[in-house]
Design a protein around this nucleic acid. Sequence first.
RNA 1: GUCCCCGUCGUCUAGGGGUCCAGGACACCGGGUUUUCAUCUCGGCAGCAGGGGUUCGAAUCCCCUCGGGGAUGCCA
Length: 475
Amino acid sequence: MRVRFAPSPTGYLHIGNARTAVVNHLIAKKSGADYIIRIEDTDKERSTVESEISILDDLRWLGIEWNEGPDQDKGHGPYRQSERDDIYSEYTKKLLQSGHAFKCFCTNEQVEEDKKEAQDQNKPFLDRCRNLTLDEQDELCAGGQFPIKFKVPEGESIVFDDKIKERVTFNSSNIGGDFIIVRSDGGAVYNYIVSIDDALMKITHVIRGEDHLSNTPKQILIAKALNLPIPEYAHLPLILGSDKKKLSKRHGITSVDIYRQEGYLPEALMNYLGLLGWSTESGEEILEFDKLISLFEISNISKSPAIFDFQKLKWMNGGYMKKYPLAEITDMFIPYLEKAEFDVKSMSREKLENIISIIRNSCEILSDVAKPAAIFFNDINIPDDEGDALLNEDYSKDIIKIASEIILILNEETVLAGLIPGIKEKTEHKGKKLFHPIRAMITGTLTGPELDLAIPVIGYDNLKKRIEYCKEKYC
RNA sequence: GUCCCCGUCGUCUAGGGGUCCAGGACACCGGGUUUUCAUCUCGGCAGCAGGGGUUCGAAUCCCCUCGGGGAUGCCA
């Protein structure tokens, strides 16, 4: 068994394509199949090497491994369609000679008109050049540049058993008429060369997005005309945005690269993508890789499209983060602390791990760490809007005043036992009315780690600074 | 327009004729824990697109309508 993922390098790795890559990977791992990466860079205008590099990089980050394809150096590949023109033109010659394809000399307007007419009369569109002989074609060509089209047979039914959609039936008269396989500039077109490449690369199972479902009959016709094997197909339902339109940037993050930067874990993304449109019998959702593979079954994938739920991905990511031992998760957080310009290097490892152990639970993604960490890294913290509003309350001002007195008679050893109980005793506040102003005073914000844990780590000197700052600002 | 695919809580889904007055998860709301927020934990809200059939019985089968998505000459 051999599967493939065939991205076109016209941008970053999109979350929808990543899902396709993940499903292929899961299937490959499960069945021990070969995984081939093929770069579909036939669109010369839009393809760039930069996107190829970044797509491959993102795939590696996700944990996807392939046996054949770019940079894998196993004696195969690189499998770039742009480097296979010779192969395609051989097949084009065959098609031309066998009468399965023809050059079309119609103008754009001509075709448009003919199509419209066919449509109005509810008849299938037949290209007016389709019956030209080879000689006639040569004559008309006369050194000019014209597209080559595939001659679609009339009234042939094309049936295939999709692994997800089950039996799908098309009629050849109904797939839009003769279609272009080679552009007038000589470049072969996607729908044409996938058939060739999949056959030549001995792909047994084509697993791809549903947007290719109605391309499939064309590809089957080409394979038949060329006497090439036809693979099994599995068409994954599309991933949609919250408005049920195809997932795009305006819905949120669609680039795998950005998820990486924001501090999502690859295993969480893989888990989420694998689970989209699919579920386990037990209902378990956080599935470590081995379990994901052993349980994954392509025939269980839903037929209907799924809306991408950013919140659930986040939740799942948080679940994975909780599983890491302190030392490891600390290492993972460090780049994000440095990015937030905290002075990590001059801090002892012990204190750093201490901080992480206090704040890790309030993080669902790695970049969440910046906010709670500020409590410990900054000397003082300017209150945010909520904190500021609270500290302007009269009872908060009382607390600040009292704190500023109490802090003077405390020291590093006594501050934990003395500060909050001392304020409580003097003000007789308790619960929220006691803790929230204190929290705002020493952290600048209303949410964060347990104060009893935070206070010893912030340390006496900084606490004093913070209290004095608030006294000046609010009292 | 035509063809193809799809339609269970807000979202991801289980369920494929009786065990479903439809189960789980995210989100949301409420209780408990935390002298505070969060975490954690317990509980709640909420759905079979609509209409016809078939059947003793339909979320499950059939038809129609509606809705969404995709493809339809030089994107993949």
